[in-house]
Computed example of a mutant assay.
Amino acid sequence: MSNTITSTDFNFPGQKSVYKGKVREVYTLENDVLVMVATDRLSAFDVVMPKGIPYKGQILNQIATKMMVATEDIVPNWLMGTPDPNVAVGHACDTFKVEMVIRGYLSGHAAREYKAGRRLICGVPMPEGMKENDKFPEPIITPATKAEMGDHDEDISREAILSRHIVSEEDYIVLEKYTKALFQRGTEIAAKRGLVLVDTKYEFGKTKDGKIVLIDEIHTPDSSRYFYADGYQERQDRGEGQKQLSKEFVRQWLISNGFQGLEGQTLPEMTDAYIETVSDRYIELYENITGETFVKADISNIQERISENVLEYLKEV
């Protein structure tokens, strides 16, 4: 697919460094400003797929931006502006080395741990007698940190975070408070769209003046799991799987084609026709999560469009 953006090589005024993640590329400028470009790369099982998905970067960036604006009254964030559909500009932060994962339901990783007989996750007890996708009595925070080797996330307990001085207790109390407040607001927003926010992750940083702020993405289908609220309880009562709104459909396609990111496995070919269906699903996710019609940006020359928009924006910063 030629009309996608899978890598960038910008040189903005005052640029000091570039960090390239699985999906986003972050340019650090000398005035403590970050330019974060959401590419069309697709990652699953910690592997980046070889082809981009049209509009995926725009979709993730615009959902995250809308959710930041919808929560800025309860939690401060890093965002300064969005000069381009694929770009967010914000304050440079020292990033906390933990992801604050919060779970309202026994799904995904927590459900796999539960099925294996474990009743503690990240030091947090899970009640007996639960079925997969049951709601927890109260949302639980199950932090994750990057493994020493590689990109895989590892479970970590609150106690370990504090004892290893990964985060100070004073700061961690704020992270917990913000995580719970964001999840509550996200749950309310989802309910208005006929959705259930099942679980999600938040990342935080500290600005140069010492303020803790929300960074990166929030409530996107790449960072969150959603169920359709309609019929949720009936499906639980019948022991059926839930209708999900996330990129889980990509993982399931990969699994059905013999790939789970394990050694020796070969990535199945993503045909242009299949990629179009993935793009359509992401647009559907956007419209369900935001309740708004998706407006496709001009993708005739994405690199040039981004460069022009960001350079114009930086003149005012």
Rank of each mutant, 00 (worst) to 15 (best):
K56C: 08
N301I: 12
V174K: 15
G210S: 04
W78Q: 07
E248T: 04
K201W: 11
G117I: 10
A144G: 12
F183T: 12
R112H: 13
D199Q: 09
Q233A: 05
I121S: 14
D222H: 13
K22H: 01
S256C: 03
D230T: 06
L175E: 04
I289H: 13
L106T: 06
R251I: 11
L120E: 14
L285S: 13
N301Q: 09
A191I: 02
D134N: 14
Y286C: 00
K22N: 02
R103I: 00
R119W: 05
I306T: 05
V213I: 11
P221G: 03
G104W: 11
E312G: 02
V198A: 15
N288V: 00
N11T: 13
P85D: 08
I59L: 04
K56W: 05
R164T: 08
D237P: 03
A229T: 14
K206F: 06
I299D: 11
L254E: 07
E25R: 06
D32I: 01
I283K: 14
L314W: 08
D151S: 14
L254R: 07
R103W: 02
L195P: 14
P143G: 05
E304G: 00
L42R: 13
N309A: 15
Q236G: 08
V278E: 07
T6I: 15
D84C: 05
T200C: 09
G231C: 04
N309C: 09
L29G: 03
E304S: 08
A147K: 10
R235I: 00
R158F: 06
T28A: 15
R225W: 02
G108C: 08
A229P: 11
L267K: 04
G150N: 09
T82I: 04
A190D: 10
L245C: 11
L262I: 04
A38R: 01
E287N: 10
N301F: 04
I189W: 03
N11H: 14
S157H: 09
Y19A: 13
K243N: 13
E234A: 14
L314P: 06
E287P: 07
D230S: 11
Y114T: 07
K20C: 00
E132L: 01
R225N: 01
A273S: 10
R185I: 02
A44C: 15
F10Q: 12
M36S: 09
N31Q: 13
K208N: 13
G104L: 02
I63P: 06
D209T: 15
F136V: 03
D153L: 09
S300K: 11
L197W: 06
R41W: 09
T187Q: 14
F183L: 07
E276V: 04
H109M: 08
Y286V: 01
V87D: 08
A64S: 15
D84N: 15
S2Y: 10
D84K: 03
L79Y: 12
E30C: 06
L254Q: 06
V310E: 11
V124C: 12
T145H: 12
K201F: 10
E30Q: 11
P50V: 12
D73R: 11
I121W: 08
R305M: 10
E292Y: 01
I166L: 15
K66P: 00
